[in-house]
Nucleic acid binder design. Structure first.
Lengths: 163, 163
DNA sequence: GACGATTATGCGATTGAGTCTCAATATTAA
DNA sequence: TTAATATTGAGACTCAATCGCATAATCGTC
């Protein structure tokens, strides 16, 4: 519900269905660490969960200037770090000076094809790839916690436009 | 001068056999871009090729202080970039503030298992993985130029010591 | 609802890896 | 040797990200 907030459990501003469970996951994470649910943290999470795709921290800071709750840059970074800890957000390095972040629903994972010409990023998931990685880890007795495959090159458009 | 240098083609300081071809590849690269073979560039390349494994730029700067040729930080960074252009060096991001670099013999490629506890890095190469990536790129009409797979987690020792 | 212990926020200063400027110097081809 | 061109080094600079600290907000408890 977006309207009046009758109970302490309905304080979120955006449409309820999507991502509600993930918000609750975040609530639980905060509770488990005795952290507080502040308006700023709500605003950051709402903004991130309302839109998919990758984004830069600075871009998020800007977007939040248009929201009803002011959130400082420092708090944006601090909240992104919290979301990373509870695995709802991933930090991405595409070789640019600024890091990217992206909202990742629990249990989901994808890798990236990054066009070095136009900057476009294609997401993909391949189960065989995942299985192969598990196999490799197993061979080394390595306990995988997370992984990241980035393939740099030219997207089909840029490749056609003349490599 | 150190050692006999009868011809312009024998200006390298370290033992000749290993990596000689790669130095020549670097020479050709320089020539093709009308760049000059300076003592500083020689010192950087000698230092990098004389030791395998990944290293930080700052570490290389330090190591070069012990060499006979002084090389400034700026030049180290500039030379690393040149080596990257001609594919003899790769830049690595392990999630730490500083980037790592590593010497990569032409045609070789490996990926990394990074222990988030002890910081140890295991290199591996898997041809099935490479083939699968080629297949994925092909499906997207994507022209792969280079790629990087990083698997973060616990190495066998750290996993045993209590995950 | 108010209180108090505790956690969070924002500002602005700070850090630090990496880049840039530019005068002085080295390399290369002729 | 020379002239044309590329390179170097010192230190200033950039800029994403972090930090310290005074003030403010949260939340369990009364």
């Amino acid at each position: 519900m977006n309207g009046p907030q009758d109970t302490p459990d309905h304080r979120w501003h955006i449409g309820a269905q999507h991502g509600q469970m993930q918000k609750e996951a975040f609530l639980e994470f905060l509770a488990s660490k005795r952290l507080k649910l502040t308006r700023q943290r709500q605003a950051v999470v709402d903004e991130i969960f309302s839109d998919s795709g990758h984004f830069e921290a600075e871009e998020l800071v800007e977007r939040l200037k248009g929201s009803r709750t002011r959130v400082s840059r420092a708090t944006v970074y601090r909240t992104l770090e919290l979301l990373r800890e509870c695995q709802l957000v991933e930090k991405l390095d595409f070789g640019t000076p600024r890091s990217f972040y992206e909202h990742v629903p629990p249990g989901e994972h994808h890798d990236h094809l990054i066009c070095t010409r136009c900057g476009n990023v294609i997401e993909f998931h391949n189960e065989r790839l995942e299985a192969l990685q598990r196999e490799i880890c197993s061979n080394f007795g390595f306990q995988d916690s997370h992984h990241s495959l980035r393939i740099f090159g030219l997207c089909s458009k840029c490749a056609q436009a003349g490599g």
